[in-house]
Amino acid sequence: MSKLEEMKLLALCAATDNREAFSRLVELHQDALRRFLLNLTGGNASLVDDLAQETFLKAWIGVRSFKGMSGFRTWLFRIAVNEFVSNRRKQAPEPLGGEWPQHLSEIGIGGGQQQSEDSLDVATALGALPADERMVILLFYLEDIPIKKICKITGMPEGTVKSHLSRGRTHLARFFKNN
């Protein structure tokens, strides 16, 4: 879908509360958003579902305040990050790296043992990173979002984002070297 078509759908949502237009936006963005949240939460599928639904719900409620300065995807991811952070504040920290083996089988990862093990390695490496670094790493490498947009999504200054990327890269390299 082109940017223009997306803006038309947003205009329909904002001006006339058009739910069909919004459902098309949800369909368009749900895969990327859920994938990002899945890897951010360490594979907790039920939490991902909740966070993703809350994100879209807040997007619907706040659609009139969306000014279109950044893309809709950037705005959506910003809401998702805020939801993740709020959720994390409410709950006790969990050992995210340790949850991956169970969650991978729950979400049906596997075209064989080797693929599961490789996925586990990358996911475990990611789970070992602090949450802020993991978030920046996922946005930059998995979602292919440029640094300036990552700054808007996370609310971090550019220097902090670059610093997280650099540290995350180093940690990942060290992890793969040791394992």
């Binding site: 459902s23 890897n39 599928a45 579902d49 719900l57 991978l104 996925s119 998995l142 990942l172």
Partner: peptide
């Protein structure tokens, strides 16, 4: 790193009801 992550990190499990779940929650 980008290739490794995009190839090996899991995508969200397919959920044909997700859109409906979201739409049902709209006020």
């Amino acid at each position: 790193i980008r290739e490794l992550m995009q190839k090996q990190l899991p995508g969200a499990p397919v959920d044909p009801w997700f859109v409906k779940k979201v739409m049902n929650r709209l006020p």
